[in-house]
């Protein structure tokens, strides 16, 4: 619980920082003129560094985790996705893992009922995890309207679809509701389920709270404390053209939103959030299980100490001769 408290306090510190920044023109200049570029460079460089460090480490053994029939004789029905035999199977498996969270779908939980362990499906984590991530993606794509001019038609269509229920003015987006639902589930389960509370670290709570901070400030800005979107897009477009037009003052909510977002972007490559890139490199998922058909050599094939037959015979020659076994050297 201490860790949860510390992560909440850290969020409050960021909020206070944002409030302070909003009150000082010099800090506004730094926040909207300099920090965006710094943070973006940190994201690109940090992420590339992470991926390259992982990439430079070799994969000595071809041991993907599989759970289906391996490709074998022609009359044995193989499972091409659970146990991929080639690139196509691997791609199908990876695509389903990344876009549909395949492994989480088969999740189960166990309870002792009537003196036996009983397993039941546990698909809520899959549902809310997927909801959370997909709505994050949709929201990021919708924000492209601030960074492109003229706005890409697809983004416009996405916004129209997202707000098709036309609840309220401006329209309430379904992805916002979904994000809040997903976040609530993920946060509550981390706080309520004892096993998860036992293993959760500061980064786990903090990452969730940070994203929630971004979402909540964004929603407040959209529905309750509207901002001058024209001026906002002028600012964001000026970022794109490398000629930042720093506004005279920014709203408190916008300052908080920016602080949360920049913190998240800069922190992303150095935390568990880099799982976004790591999943592509996981040797247990992205390799085809074809050890029976192709020979794979360990790139750093370490020498192994072997015991030769000559050494064996040197030790046991007398005993072998005693029982009449032929020997190489008399």
């Amino acid at each position: 619980m201490m860790i949860l408290l510390i992560s909440v306090i850290t969020i409050f510190i960021i909020i206070l920082l944002a409030l302070g920044i909003a009150m000082s023109p010099a800090m506004v200049f730094i926040l909207t003129g300099i920090i965006p570029y710094v943070v973006f460079v940190i994201l690109l460089a940090g992420f590339a560094h992470r991926i390259i460090t992982w990439g430079r480490t070799p994969v000595p053994f071809r041991i993907p985790t599989t759970c289906g029939q391996e490709k074998s004789l022609p009359w044995i029905k193989a499972n091409p996705v659970e146990n991929p035999a080639g690139a196509l199977g691997v791609i199908a498996r990876m695509v389903q893992e990344i876009f549909l969270f395949r492994s989480l779908f088969r999740n189960t939980d166990v309870k002792i009922i009537g003196g036996r362990p009983v397993y039941d499906g546990a698909k809520w984590l899959w549902f809310f995890g997927l909801l959370f991530h997909v709505s994050l993606l949709i929201i990021v794509l919708r924000h492209l309207r601030f960074f492109t001019e003229p706005v890409i038609p697809c983004v416009g269509m996405l916004s129209a679809l997202d707000g098709f229920l036309e609840i309220g003015v401006p329209a309430l987006y379904l992805s916002d509701v979904a994000l809040l639902a997903g976040f609530t589930f993920l946060f509550l389960r981390r706080v309520i389920i004892p096993q998860l509370r036992y293993i959760s670290l500061f980064t786990d709570y903090f990452a969730l709270l940070l994203i929630a901070g971004v979402a909540v400030t964004g929603l407040l800005m959209r529905h309750f404390f509207p901002a001058d979107l024209n001026a906002l897009k002028t600012l964001t477009m000026s970022w794109i053209t490398f000629a930042p037009v720093v506004p005279e003052g920014i709203g408190v909510l916008f300052s908080m939103h920016l602080c949360f977002v920049f913190f998240l972007i800069a922190w992303l490559p150095f935390s568990k959030l880099a799982h976004a890139g790591g999943i592509f490199m996981s040797p247990m998922r992205n390799m085809a299980n074809n050890n029976r058909s192709l020979r794979h050599v360990n790139p750093w094939n370490a020498p192994v100490k072997v015991h030769t037959y000559a050494e064996y015979e040197d030790e046991f020659r007398d005993k072998m001769k005693a029982v009449g076994l032929p020997v190489e050297k008399e």
Partner: peptide, 13 residues
């Protein structure tokens, strides 16, 4: 071992 390095970094609990 890339697996070792990745698994040390990637767990999201």
């Amino acid at each position: 071992y890339r697996s070792f390095r990745l698994f040390m970094d990637i767990c999201v609990r």
